[in-house]
Design a protein around this nucleic acid. Structure first.
Lengths: 193, 193
DNA sequence: ATATGAGTAGACCAGTCTGTCTAGTGATTC
DNA sequence: GAATCACTAGACAGACTGGTCTACTCATAT
């Protein structure tokens, strides 16, 4: 299988880069874990940076699947859906979950300033994410769950920033508490009609 | 002067680590920029990690000075003070400023998980910061600028997370707009009686 | 005068980094 | 059955990593 090697590299790379960071993860480390020789790596990817791009896209695709699954279920009220979505994120990326933190946020701080190749990928993924949440908020406004004066796009950006910030703090505190605080404030105070 | 060398190392280190990150900044690089030989570095600091601790403490001290200066001026109304404070932060750490991003947030994502030595320093600095903001919010409650039901400590944490998230997004977008959005939402919507 | 010790100086070490190079494999195509 | 091509394989290169080591300077204390 031609593509299996490539897939496995991305798989292992995603896991390692998410856990340890882009800079801290060496190509050799990935190679060793995947039991794949170096020649294969540089056959499939021109550089580590290009590899990271593929990893980022893989991550983005996975997250897109998540939000489509959880935010797309129109049988549930919009704000309820949104809360379930963030609860799912919390279970997945909180400190009790298998991997902690958001790869997007992590990579953003590490490379967005310095890599002109990765920055647009990050930007695009954030954008799509923002839009998905804005869409739910629009529904919430339409159904009267939010005031008509609410600006879905801006509010969605505010929520995302908030989530990313809470992840940082939860890393520092080594606790899920900041994430719980995020949920609480967001749904008890911010998203009130 | 015995301490000048040490001071200069911290100075240069702070600047480089803030700009490029902890992992991406080599000891040799700092040495070269400061024009100081390696022997001195390892005389003053047992390791790169210990050096980073000193850098972090220096950064924390600088930030403490900032918030004491801007948040301590009781001649200005509490929420007005808070806004001025965040505007100052934005001018300093926004993309138009000389250095972008918050060293605390950057390092948090990079090392909080992996360094047991740096994590408590990060935690302590965040804590102190949180408390300083909570104090202003308490004043705001006392003066009737905020509802009595507001929880200063939690609200302060929420604001900080928000700010850090906005900084991430502003890095990704390569624009100050997310920071402006933060200011707008925070003071027009969140901190309303 | 001499001893002590903080601090300077930089060569050096072992290991790691990303990336290159050549050689070879194995399946498909003409 | 020969040529071609995607892919595997891993030795190797050259730069760079954090950290060590020994030699040295120089101010102070006795």
């Amino acid at each position: 299988m031609a593509h299996k090697t490539r897939e496995q590299l991305i798989e292992v790379g995603l896991q390692r880069i998410h856990a340890a960071g882009y800079g801290a993860t060496g190509v050799n480390e990935i190679l060793q874990l995947a039991d794949i020789p170096k020649g294969s790596f540089y056959h499939h990817f021109p550089s580590k940076e290009a590899f990271a791009e593929a990893v980022l896209e893989r991550y983005g695709a996975g997250e897109k699947a998540r939000w489509e699954r959880l935010l797309g279920d129109k049988s549930i009220a919009p704000l309820k859906r949104l809360r379930l979505y963030f609860e799912d994120l919390m279970a997945t990326y909180g400190r009790t979950g298998p991997i902690s933190g958001c790869l997007l946020g992590n990579m953003a701080l590490e490379v967005a300033d310095h890599s002109d190749k990765l920055q647009p990928v990050l930007q695009g993924t954030f954008s799509a994410w923002n839009e998905a949440i804005a869409e739910v908020l629009r529904e919430a406004v339409a159904k009267g769950e939010l005031d008509h004066s609410a600006k879905p796009k801006e509010l969605a950006a505010f929520l995302l920033n908030n989530w990313e910030g809470a992840l940082i703090r939860s890393k520092v505190e080594r606790s899920d508490q900041p994430l719980e605080l995020f949920l609480h404030f967001t749904f008890k105070a911010l998203l009130k009609k």
